[in-house]
Amino acid sequence: MTGSILEIRDLRVAFTGAAKPVRAVDGVDLALVPGEVVALLGESGSGKSVTLRSILRLHPENKTRIEGSIVAAGIDVMALSGAALADFRGKTVSMIFQEPMLALDPVYTLGAQITEAIRKHESGVSADAARKRALGLFERVRIPSPERRLDSYPHELSGGMRQRAMIALALACNPKVLLADEPTTALDATVQVQILLLLRELQRELDLAMIFVTHDIGVGVEVADRIAVMYAGRIVEIGAVRDVIRAPRHPYTIGLLSTRAQGGRLSGKRLPTITGSPPDLASLPPGCAFAPRCSSATSACLEAAPAAVELGHGHAVRCIHTAAVA
């Protein structure tokens, strides 16, 4: 796709540390234009976080086999190494994590961590100037009494404030792409809404492209332009938020949307469920990985992995039964 800020092509990631290689990501294609937000939705083990981490090459190299291509802002990510890779991380593509307590360094103040990031990536910035920028960032993410908070250590802040500080750190070097790995999952409901609104506002103001990994469809709907649903290492459905939520076409997406306990219980009603559990990534079936749990599966589903079927307006589904209905 021309004009994309981030393009992932046929990404395959296998972890080779165990006896059998674990195929965590199995052929992911995804492209983002500047200023676009894509929610990568899936359950644990679906490969959503692995895909995200591959973009920053965060996987241990001796135990991981990565194939395919990733191009971010014209940079071939797969070819990077050493200083060039360190420069790329945080400056071109930056990331926020689920647990700020683990992502932030506990022995340095927040101000020190942000000024360090700025001065490492941009030579010639004085310590004073970097501190001023850090203060500006803290105001921007709306941390109360920012001047004082710059001299705080991570453990002195509440969970919501720590998450704001991590967002400030991630934005310190003006990245073009922001990767968010379940940034609100560990937060309370009333705080989660505040962080989602903040991220949405910053993303718009800074025209950031963002991939937002989440297991919560509600969060995806709240922030994203497009939703990509992952299952067993593949994107099984992708499309505009409205299309995916209102007219899901993949049986897995349909199932996920209906299993939500929403709107209370009409007397004695049971929840619709998806039977079974997610597959073992070390021994995936040759066909559609969802087939063993799918109520509309036929013998054809077990033969080969289904190709993506285009339904128009960028809505695509990997299911051989979808074409027949369309």
Binding site: S158, T190, V191, Q194, L196, L197, E222, Q262
Partner: peptide, 18 residues
């Protein structure tokens, strides 16, 4: 969260942490 892309949350009901 509303689950409806046309009815996204526009303002947080309360600010701050517990």
């Amino acid at each position: 969260l509303s689950m409806d892309p046309d009815r996204r949350t526009v303002a947080a009901p309360i600010s701050g942490d517990p």
